[in-house]
Design a binder for these strands. Structure first.
Length: 573
DNA sequence: GCCGTTTTCGGCCCGACTGTTTTCAGTCG
């Protein structure tokens, strides 16, 4: 069985960790990490790329050796170089890297001296005091390590964007309204609208930093003040979200914002371009020798490098710099361009509001249309509709439309894709609907081949319009089901099926990477909320964030169209 | 281990902070 891209990326990351602890050439370590990132960012599985006979060395950061390594991993499921390293050094050492304050050098020291390979052994040596015999280990560090061991289970935890957002925005206005504060921006992955954020990086331009920091650490939702320094202060909020506040000089604002917005890979690329011009970019500005020649705004930095401005959502080193150079950056879709919502539930099944209430809430948002897409009969827990009740609902919608002004309700269904790939309702009724979403709600654990065959077969049904939450993943809870995405994309093209970006913040499915591939393949997308109540129509924002991260433009999204255009697009053939 | 219009060797982003030192290594973002 071929390994997935993320499994291969994990292998390379583990390889990098082990090499680092071994003390290998740091650039070799970096090469493995770069390769892991490249693999993770691919929209197509490596095994299918190999099957197609693609030269893997064409991928950035993959050279002769790594291409062979990938081939070996795909063929055998194992990586002999990693296996060999594990014989030299026990597995588990790389887990210690997650402890704050412990890096490769100190882990090596601990292993060489005490043969420490686990958190338990580490705690023992730290508590007994033996650890102090090592050079460079003082009381503060040891305390930090012990704390890290206790927190190890939580390590690596990231917060969903929607969870972090209220804290970010509350802090933003809390700081903005303090006297002497000139500029506030929440940078980092939050500004890039990533689906999860590790922490919040807030930049502040202020006349009196000391007083701003005092104000900051007095914020009521803070659990712990970690540090309070002359340029930076770190706190932990009650929900364990870490917030870094950074003082920035006015003239450095652009370069600081760029630096702290990231991503790291994007920044490295930009800095390399500066080097080629004989400049240096850091968080304080653009420099020629000692002389500052720019950095007040991000726009200026990009302009100096001969680049068009790159939106934060694109800054992942997924081709945006090249696209910018060549003047082919996408004009990213905006929330304002959305004219309707194509995945909405009502209290006919598991929704909490009537169709009218949903329609009026949508109208209040300025939409022209919504599609009511309740569940089909197989989903009994949600009171799924059988043909009879669906026909009743269709009639009710027709009547409702006669009384509604300024918004149209489309008749739809979120139809279960059964295990054999057939749809959960008869053709006779599906034919009469305005829109048919197909979705998988059970049997998530079929083999890749079976699951792909199941979904492709369903998509071949002539009424099938949109594949809803295509991969089934739930952020932090459930992985995507095994699926050959190449085959799914192919079927989308052949059958004129659109893919959904489900805007539920725990789904955001398709993800950004697949959304970009879908775009490149010429596939249409529907950004839809799957709302079960009027408030959830606001989730559209998260779906649009993901669409923007997937490089999508207005034209590629069904629900930016007028009702007339949309209806034409939904009619196949 | 990758990469290349200064190309097959010799570079590889850049700086701050912390804790430990007494001038700096290690870690982090």
């Amino acid at each position: 069985m071929a390994l997935s891209n993320s499994e291969i990326a994990d292998i390379f990351n583990q390889m990098a960790d082990m090499l680092e602890i071994k003390g290998e050439n740091p650039f070799k370590v970096r090469a493995y990490r770069n390769a892991a990132r490249t693999v993770q960012n691919l929209g197509k599985s490596l095994d299918s790329l190999m099957e197609e006979g693609m030269e893997l060395t064409k991928l950035p950061g993959i050279g002769h050796d790594l291409a062979e390594s990938i081939a070996e991993i795909i063929e055998t499921g194992k990586f002999s170089k990693l296996e060999a390293l594990k014989k030299e050094m026990p597995e588990g050492l790389d887990k210690l890297l997650s402890i704050e304050g412990l890096g490769p050098k100190r882990i090596r020291q601990l292993y060489d001296t005490f043969h420490i390979t686990s958190l338990e052994e580490l705690a023992k040596v730290a508590e007994s005091g033996e650890i102090y015999t090592l050079k460079g280990f003082g009381p503060k560090l040891v305390e930090k390590i012990l704390k890290g061991v206790r927190l190890a289970k939580k390590a690596g935890h990231r917060f969903r964007f929607d969870v972090a957002k209220p804290f970010a925005e509350e802090l933003r206005s809390y700081l903005e309204n303090f006297e002497g504060v000139i500029d506030v921006e929440v940078a980092g992955s939050y500004r890039r609208k990533k689906e999860t954020v590790g922490d919040l990086d807030i930049l502040v331009v202020a006349e009196n930093w000391e007083r701003v920091v005092d104000w900051f650490v007095a914020f009521e939702k803070i659990k712990e003040v970690v540090s309070k320094g002359p340029t930076r202060s770190t706190v932990i909020l009650r929900n364990d979200l870490q917030v870094d506040l950074r003082s920035v000089a006015k003239e450095s604002y652009g370069s600081a914002l760029h630096y702290f917005t990231g991503s790291k890979a994007h920044n490295i690329k930009i800095r390399k371009m500066a080097i080629e011009k004989g400049w240096k970019i850091n968080e304080y500005g653009v420099f020629q020798g000692e002389r500052r020649i720019g950095g007040e705004t991000e726009e200026q930095i990009y302009r100096m490098l001969g680049l068009r401005y790159i939106e934060p959502e694109l800054r992942e080193d997924r081709g945006e710099v090249e696209a910018s150079l060549e003047g082919r950056l996408p004009k990213l879709v905006t929330l304002e361009e959305v004219r309707g919502d194509l995945h909405v539930h009502s209290n006919w099944t598991d929704g909490h509001a009537s169709i009218r209430e949903m329609a009026e809430a949508a109208k209040a948002k300025g939409y022209d249309y919504i599609a009511i897409t309740d569940h089909s009969r197989h989903l009994t827990v949600a009171k799924g509709l059988d043909e009879k009740r669906l026909r009743e609902q269709m009639e009710a919608i027709d009547k409702l439309n006669e009384t509604l002004d300024g918004i149209t309700v489309l008749k739809g269904i979120e139809c279960d894709i059964l295990e054999d790939g057939s749809l959960d309702l008869p053709d006779s009724v599906l034919n009469e609907l305005d829109i048919v979403l197909g979705a998988v709600h059970y049997k998530f654990n079929l083999s890749k081949k079976e699951q792909t065959r199941r979904i492709v077969k369903a998509m071949q049904h002539p009424c099938f319009n949109v594949l809803a939450h295509p991969t089934g993943r739930i952020i932090g809870h459930r992985n995507a089901y095994e699926l050959d995405m190449g085959e799914i994309f192919k079927a989308c093209k052949n059958e004129q099926v659109a893919l959904e970006i489900n805007a539920q913040p725990e789904r955001l499915d398709l993800n950004d990477i697949y959304a970009k591939v879908a775009k490149e393949e010429g596939i249409k997308l529907s950004v839809a909320t799957d709302a079960h109540d009027p408030m959830s129509l606001d989730f559209m924002e998260y779906g649009i964030n993901q669409a923007r991260r997937g490089w999508l433009e207005k034209e590629e999204i069904l629900n930016t169209r007028t009702l007339k255009q949309l209806k034409a697009l939904l009619k196949k053939g």
